[in-house]
Amino acid sequence: MLAQNVQVAQNIGFGIIAAVMIASALKVVTSSNVVHAALALVAVLAGAAAQYLLLAAEFVAVTQILVYVGAVMVLFLFGVMLTRAKLGRDADLNNKNAKVGIPVALLMLGVMVYVLIDGWHATKLPQDGGQVELKNVSDSIFVPYLLPFWALSFVLLAAVIGAIVLARKD
């Protein structure tokens, strides 16, 4: 009864993954080593994929692993290597007035936490329902959201061509 209502296993899993994600995200924005920050970003992205699994979104989780952990991180590491960043500690990664970011971020966090707790304090996710079937995802992509899908393919095409044009040597 209690376990059914509270979902102990899911909550413990959520808590552990969330703690790892937040710690890694803080390392991404505070680390003085570019490669360490990139590796911490891998932990955040993989943790996000695990949270998507807890939200019953398997396809998005697999896509997250393939696209982010697989492709985007390789791009980032290429970016780090090609710009000849210092591979050790680098004290010159932050702005002069980086401290300004702390009150801004805390203020935003305060407002968002207040609004979220005020609005959704007792709302529970459905216990068992809401299993996301891949058939429904494809139906959703190819029937009501077909036009954004087309637009997205043009965006990707433009991004590929634009990246080649920008990075080409001539």
Binding site: L93, N94, V100
Partner: peptide
């Protein structure tokens, strides 16, 4: 995570 990201955008120079 959003606020940590916003802090990173503001604070980072690289």
């Amino acid at each position: 995570l959003f606020c940590i990201g916003v802090y990173g955008v503001i604070a980072r120079k690289n």
